[in-house]
Design a protein around this nucleic acid. Sequence first.
DNA 1: TGAAAAACGACCCATTTGAGGGATTCCTGG
DNA 2: CCAGGAATCCCTCAAATGGGTCGTTTTTCA
Lengths: 209, 209
Amino acid sequence: MNDQSQIRVLCVDDHPLMRDGIGAAIRNEHDMLLVAEAAGGHEAIKAFREHQPDVTLMDLRLPDISGIDAMLAIRTEFREARVIMLTTFEGDAEMQRALNAGAQGYLLKSLPRRQLLDVIRKVHSGRKHIPPEVAMHLAEHVGQDALSKREVEVLQTIALGKRNSEIAVLLFISEETVKGHIKHILEKLGASDRTEAVAIGVRRGIIHL
Amino acid sequence: MNDQSQIRVLCVDDHPLMRDGIGAAIRNEHDMLLVAEAAGGHEAIKAFREHQPDVTLMDLRLPDISGIDAMLAIRTEFREARVIMLTTFEGDAEMQRALNAGAQGYLLKSLPRRQLLDVIRKVHSGRKHIPPEVAMHLAEHVGQDALSKREVEVLQTIALGKRNSEIAVLLFISEETVKGHIKHILEKLGASDRTEAVAIGVRRGIIHL
DNA sequence: TGAAAAACGACCCATTTGAGGGATTCCTGG
DNA sequence: CCAGGAATCCCTCAAATGGGTCGTTTTTCA
């Protein structure tokens, strides 16, 4: 098989053992080639520029910048870049952002070897792929409107244990406004109090601790 | 090299790709042998009984039961079992429990391939191993007394968004007692309110969402 | 066996929170 | 141009929270 027909793959993950696992899977296939590996986001961008792979496997959480930001950086420079997000389950918010940001696939790391290879081929051929488990989790929250940017900021600050008056100071708004935001947050997330709101926010990947 | 001198290894992880990575690392070494793999805790116990490996690599979080419980089950049956906990960073509480439960090693999945092999050999030779990053995180919380069993239950229920009166009903105690427990929780964790207590509890691996 | 810790309960009291009800801008998409 | 959402602010008020201090009983463990 000549170089033309091989799928050139870049693998980005901060766990060497995981990279080895992915690498082993790919090396066994004669129609694909692992052209580079990266352990971090910046490294990934550099590697992409250098090798311009057909498909990029990108871990969502990396030591330096998030996988989504790395993908965003790559895709603004190379609009045709095809990226598959690979992650141990996070919330629906992360998936949503990844897919909105232009990911062609969103896979869970718990997937069987075969499926990874199938999806690489599928994405390389120009199709998108979202596995049913992931699609289900996304579907669970359609219709429920997302938190606004400001509301996320407030929720993030709540998670720091700040009281309303402190949040007001930190965000340069009045305490009454903070209470207004919190009211909306509780409504939108279906939480009974600020603590549950934080728990739900973390589970859904809206905020991080 | 004959069978006597080979280190027989069992690998337990729910991610096939990670198992592949670990498997590849071990297969390249002539002084060790991967005798079995398992994707879950029960499967791991079954595999251990069957193969009685010298060293077991165990992921902390598994689909069915926790890696610690699986290790506990194995170690009550086979007291000489040597288990290395392998995990993407969790809190100090998890490490503490793992080590108290008899783990001979506690490694982060972000470790380089070589280190894994070194630690397998070290543990097989009867020594324990805790990497410096892990030891540091443990050291950060020595002296700070741990939450009591009841306090953890209360904290876990707080994370569900329950109010004190609801917690009282759920745990069959008076609301005053709940407040007493919460008071101690806030002190011990150094939290300013229940929300921050939950955030800290999750970060430190004391509770899960 | 004796001290320490955990678990339980009660009282008071100031502060915080959340649930109502409003109102005003600004900006964006039909 | 107008509807609607986001963001800002204000008022009231009951309920929840967190801090303090004081007890009892049981369990743990050194």
